[in-house]
Write a protein that binds this DNA or RNA. Sequence first.
DNA 1: TAAATCTTTTCACATTATGGAAAGAAGGAG
DNA 2: CTCCTTCTTTCCATAATGTGAAAAGATTTA
Lengths: 267, 267
Amino acid sequence: MQKVSHSKSESASTSGVQSVERALDLLEYLAQSSRWMRISELSADTGQPVGTIHRLLQTLIARDYVVRDSNTRRYALGPAFSALAGSNLIMPNWQEIATPLLRELVEISGETANLVVMEGDRAVYAAQAPSMRIIRMFTELGNKVPLHCTGCGKILLAYQPERIVRSIIARTGLPMRTATTITDPIQFGQELATIRQRGYGLDNGEQEEGVRCIAVPVFGPDEKVVAAISVSGPSNRLDLSQAPIFAPHLKRVSANITAALMDELKK
Amino acid sequence: MQKVSHSKSESASTSGVQSVERALDLLEYLAQSSRWMRISELSADTGQPVGTIHRLLQTLIARDYVVRDSNTRRYALGPAFSALAGSNLIMPNWQEIATPLLRELVEISGETANLVVMEGDRAVYAAQAPSMRIIRMFTELGNKVPLHCTGCGKILLAYQPERIVRSIIARTGLPMRTATTITDPIQFGQELATIRQRGYGLDNGEQEEGVRCIAVPVFGPDEKVVAAISVSGPSNRLDLSQAPIFAPHLKRVSANITAALMDELKK
DNA sequence: TAAATCTTTTCACATTATGGAAAGAAGGAG
DNA sequence: CTCCTTCTTTCCATAATGTGAAAAGATTTA
């Protein structure tokens, strides 16, 4: 258990309430660890003395943000988060807001249109307007897929701060799903840069052979990306050369969703 | 908008890192307010001076737990929560864990079996094993329903600390959905007490005319309730006099789900 | 343009969080 | 069963940290 520079360096910079930041560090560490943690582990891994960790945990437990298994004396995130996460300010009713707008994309492209949000280390389908054709892309709502090998997932990552992207990749890696999956971190970084630059992203069968998709970001308040929308279909119909043609339509619909979202939020 | 006791009383008592508690107060207040809030409102409603609120918000914004709309200078919960909420420690893959176990209930009862979790002020269907009969109860997964008028919802509330229950009811009220919906807070309190006492809950068409259900809690670590399971069916088949017969089966399956959950968690 | 309202920054102060160390539990080895 | 080790919890003197009143700045209203 080695001490890690008790100096205030790292996140010090300016402002920031120390104890709050440490509490958040703790919560985030618990979130990303895939098993229940003991105090000594938390202390070692976050570099805070056990006393401090213990006191923070007490506070968080009292509010149900952390639970303690009294048998093993291990800690994990608690149920209070789902109450926060359920707030419709951060989890809008995407089905209601987006589905009618997504249908427009189905009419234009003939392919299934999706709205996807980030949840933890994965992308989740939150709304969908299915293609009317016999062969079509279809996913259950709530379905979770990797971020690195889907059009929408890559969009969501591309508009995330560097540090978030790195920590996600550190945890999940870039596992190969098909022959076209990008598995090299450097190349993946370039892919994200390309996406940011041209404003839309592609999925060339990177998650599932034979499924292609074109995706754009959906912005919330303050230009933060809150979701991604896409049209997805079978490779034989959806040629990636069509992307520059579809992208403006996707962007228009994205802007409409942003507007609808803002309407929901403003009072 | 009246001021609520500026005294440090309330949660003071022992322990608890003050600034962390205040930050949590702030987050919870933001979560429950249905619109974006200005600093002055937050200050008035939480009883903290604007300076303090401002500083806390800075810290939370820096970490994306709060977002600020720079046009209106209003604040809301930020995207960092979905990352935490996505942690499989607090959001297990219920479909995977519970669905096979729920099927057992379908075989016994002939009716649809559901697993429901709490999310914010509502209950969300997280797993389901549908009845094989022609007329049957069915809901989309991810569907959100009120807590106060559903079997599972009432279970979830019954095993929640008083203060949580009160704050939820304060926000949502007890709106009448059918003739049997409990709309009186006192009576509702008694209902929750009854549920705790006998260990299972009923829904006698309180949300939808003609749909009845029997529900029991699902416990996680440390005897905390993390979900509820139920069998639901049409009133003409599902007589509430059958409840004492079904309840033990529900409890057995609930225990199995708890066990499966623990297996997931322990390494 | 002036007044009023709201937001952001500042700063002296002491309350509050800190973390080392002691006390207490639990777990393991012999 | 007892001793020893390892981990958790509590304690407390210290000063670093968070506090909040008020000033400064920004924006909206009159």
